[in-house]
Nucleic acid binder design. Structure first.
Lengths: 166, 166
DNA sequence: AATTTATGTCAGCTATGTTGACATAAATTT
DNA sequence: AAATTTATGTCAACATAGCTGACATAAATT
């Protein structure tokens, strides 16, 4: 510590008056923490983690997507994906099929087992969302969806538009 | 694989027709992914991670909170907290002060340095939120906040109510 | 024929979480 | 006053999920 005064404790809290929207920052933190806690409990029974969940989810939502496409959605490296994907293939949740046009590509598909697990993981999350929307009007619901979409980096919003059945 | 049919690829995507709200599930994933990417870049310059951010944030929002209270908010173990907290103390971002009433307790306070960093981390997140609300009316904004709060486990909502300056 | 691309794999590292065990000082209870 | 409980700290070992760098292979492209 170069300066003794630098170690002085500040006893006043940061508030909205500091020009920062702390309430929504914290709401996002708490909401996401609890939103992910539901599937985490189920995954633990399978020896899987959140990484497996994300892979399984997008393979179910975009069956036939390639490894490269999946990496782009998840924004992780292929080495990170490899371990998790291998486990999901070994346990029969996902299968790889060589691409027809480009035989270098591996298209990823869920099996019946993988689909069942994906649904089981999504169910409590969907229930939580439905409960949170319980007293909301349709326009309010749309406002929430617009807000969440606007929180995503503009250049990455095309990823959302590619997903089926909005 | 016991059953050959179990390995059959499913080629149809999961959609809303499966009774699950996939769109909001995915919006939350993408929104949170990008929401946390802003401070992550700043933290990397300090050799800190997301764990440091969370500690620094709540110490700034609730100056004087004890170690036990912080553990309760973060929902991690004291051993996990210890490493991160030690680094924040060693670098002069946080100071510990022995409790006055109960001298076993360690009250945590930010220093000027810690407050500056907390603000720098919150600023881009707040900017992103403001941009996402740009075309929203005040009631729409309230609807978003109600939704996010309703996503939190009911028994944990008291944590949100304890925070200052809503 | 040479190069690029899609994927896989090996090795090692980091950050952040976990459990279990034990230590200390201060508060509380008996 | 002694015993117990509580708040905190610390050591050790471990798991998960990310990372970088290097290299291999097969297929597509130039």
């Amino acid at each position: 510590m170069a300066d003794r005064t630098a170690a002085e404790p500040i006893r006043t809290p940061l508030t909205i008056e500091d020009g920062i929207d702390f309430s929504v920052i914290e709401l996002l933190f708490f909401a996401y923490r609890d939103f992910t806690s539901d599937p985490d409990e189920i995954l633990a029974d399978y020896g899987f983690g959140r990484a497996h969940h994300r892979v399984l989810h997008f393979v179910n939502r975009l069956p036939g997507l390639t490894v490269a496409e999946l990496l782009d959605v998840l924004k992780i490296t292929k080495q990170s994906l490899a371990r998790v994907l291998k486990q999901l293939i070994d346990t029969g949740h996902i299968v790889q099929i060589q691409g027809l046009q480009d035989r270098r590509q591996r298209e990823l598909y869920p099996t019946a087992k993988g689909r069942t697990l994906a649904l089981a993981l999504a169910r409590p999350q969907s229930r939580r969302i439905a409960a949170a929307f319980h007293d909301a009007t349709p326009p309010e619901r749309e406002a929430v969806e617009r807000f969440l979409k606007a929180m995503v980096d503009p250049e990455l919003r095309i990823q959302i538009d590619k997903l089926p059945g909005e």
